[in-house]
Amino acid sequence: MTQKLYRRHSGRPGGMKVETFNQLQQRIPERIIEHAIRGSFLKEGALFNHLKVYKGPDHPHDAQKPIELPIQDKRVQKQR
């Protein structure tokens, strides 16, 4: 958690900012998820613009009502 570094640059000389995973998790935890997903989209940056990441289980999308799906694989044990 202290070795993973997140870098950003403001575009100005000397504008490089470096944060550790712990610092970024305390400040903006959803940014970590966005960074990981952005890397997996490769060249399809337009898809990333539609992504919405929220901290915690609450979100403003009332139409989405997730339900828990049963795990049918006996090798996988559910943690409770």
Rank of each mutant, 00 (worst) to 15 (best):
S40G: 08
K65M: 08
A36E: 08
K52G: 11
I67H: 09
A63G: 01
E44V: 10
Q23D: 13
R12Y: 14
R31W: 04
K55Y: 14
Q77F: 04
F48V: 14
G39V: 00
R12L: 06
H35A: 09
P70W: 02
H50P: 00
E68R: 15
F41T: 07
H59N: 15
G11C: 00
G45N: 12
R31H: 04
Q64N: 10
V18Y: 08
L24N: 00
Q25W: 10
Y54S: 09
L24A: 01
S10F: 09
L69P: 03
V53R: 12
T2E: 08
G11R: 04
Q25E: 02
H9C: 13
K43Q: 05
Y6N: 07
E30F: 02
H59E: 14
Q64F: 14
L42H: 14
K43I: 03
L5V: 01
V53G: 06
I37T: 00
R12E: 09
D73F: 03
E34R: 15
D73S: 05
L24E: 00
S40M: 11
K74R: 01
P60N: 06
R7I: 15
D62C: 13
N22Y: 02
A63K: 07
L51T: 01
G39C: 08
G39R: 12
A46C: 12
D62H: 12
G45R: 02
E68K: 15
P60Y: 10
I37H: 09
H35G: 03
K74Y: 03
Q26V: 01
L42E: 03
I32P: 03
P29C: 03
I67E: 06
Q79V: 09
I28E: 10
R27V: 04
A46I: 10
D58I: 06
Q77D: 03
P57L: 15
R75C: 02
A36T: 03
Q25L: 05
I33T: 11
I37F: 14
N22I: 08
K4Q: 05
S40T: 03
R7G: 05
H59C: 15
K52L: 11
P29M: 01
S10K: 13
K43G: 07
P70M: 08
Q64H: 11
P66K: 06
E19D: 13
L51F: 02
V53F: 07
K55R: 13
K17D: 05
P29L: 04
G14L: 10
P70K: 08
G14M: 10
V18W: 00
R80A: 15
Q23Y: 00
E68A: 14
R27C: 05
R38I: 02
F21E: 06
K55G: 07
M16F: 08
L24P: 00
V53E: 04
R38L: 06
S10R: 11
K43N: 11
A46P: 00
P70D: 02
G45L: 10
R8Y: 07
R27P: 03
L51E: 05
L69W: 01
P57K: 14
Y6S: 04
M16I: 14
H50F: 09
K52E: 06
F48M: 13
K65S: 06
Y54N: 09
P13W: 01
P13Y: 02
L5E: 03
P60W: 04
V18M: 12
D73I: 00
G56L: 04
P66T: 04
Q77R: 14
Q25K: 05
L51P: 00
V76R: 13
K17L: 15
H9N: 14
L24Q: 01
A46V: 07
M16K: 15
P29Y: 03
H50K: 15
